[in-house]
Amino acid sequence: MKKILVATDASEYSRKALKNALELARKFHSEVELLFVMYKPLVYDVNQLDMDLISPDLLEEAGELAIQATLEGMDVTDVSLTKKILPGKPANIILREIESENIDLVVMGSHGYGAIAGAILGSVSQRVLHGAKCSVLIAK
């Protein structure tokens, strides 16, 4: 197991996922990728040209805050950790990242942040679980 992907939304479930991933990374000398995906809805004008509703600056700021909150109090000094912030539909981006980065294991929380986000991440974890070509660990 060389590469572990941890999907985060800064929830306690995401923090538990990272904690599990770090333990596995230490045991197997694996790299960890901490990924925050910001759902980025698009609208279409009359000419069918898509326009972003979320600015790149807002995406970066939200991603940095989510990653900082996930890493708060975690000791990552002895683990190779990469942080990524990407826009899009979370399940689609996570599944794409699994393929493009040759991920061996995905670790993610079972629920997300709050009632609405929790329902979204619950469906995201289900889609990743069923669509991933690697093992998926769901942290509770």
Rank of each mutant, 00 (worst) to 15 (best):
V37N: 04
E23C: 01
M38S: 12
D45P: 09
V46P: 02
N47I: 06
L24G: 01
V43P: 00
L53R: 03
K40S: 14
V32E: 08
M38I: 02
L24E: 08
F36G: 00
E60M: 12
E33Q: 03
Q48K: 15
V37Y: 01
Y44L: 15
E60G: 00
E33I: 13
K40A: 15
P56E: 15
N47K: 09
R26S: 04
Y44R: 04
V32T: 08
M38Y: 08
L58R: 09
P41H: 02
V37I: 05
F28I: 04
V43N: 02
L34R: 08
L49I: 09
L58V: 07
L42A: 07
L42F: 07
I54E: 07
L35E: 01
K40E: 14
E33L: 12
L59W: 05
S55G: 06
F28T: 09
D50Q: 11
E23M: 10
A25G: 05
L53M: 14
K40F: 14
D50P: 08
F28P: 02
M38N: 12
N47A: 12
R26T: 06
D57P: 00
L53H: 05
N47D: 11
L35Q: 02
L53Y: 03
K27W: 01
S55N: 02
K27S: 09
A25R: 03
Y39I: 04
A25D: 00
S55I: 03
E33C: 06
K40R: 02
K27H: 11
D45S: 13
V32M: 06
K27D: 08
E31I: 01
L53Q: 01
P56F: 05
L53A: 00
E23Q: 10
H29R: 11
L53V: 12
E23W: 04
E60R: 15
M38L: 13
M51V: 11
Q48G: 08
L49T: 10
L34I: 09
V46T: 10
H29V: 07
M38K: 14
L34W: 07
E23D: 11
L35S: 08
Y44M: 14
D57T: 13
Y44H: 05
K40T: 15
Y39C: 04
V46W: 11
D50A: 11
E60S: 12
V32C: 06
V46D: 12
D45A: 12
L34D: 02
S55K: 11
H29W: 00
A25C: 05
D45L: 14
D45E: 07
D57R: 13
D45C: 10
L42S: 07
S55P: 01
Y44Q: 04
F28G: 01
A25F: 05
L24D: 01
M51L: 07
D52R: 14
S55F: 06
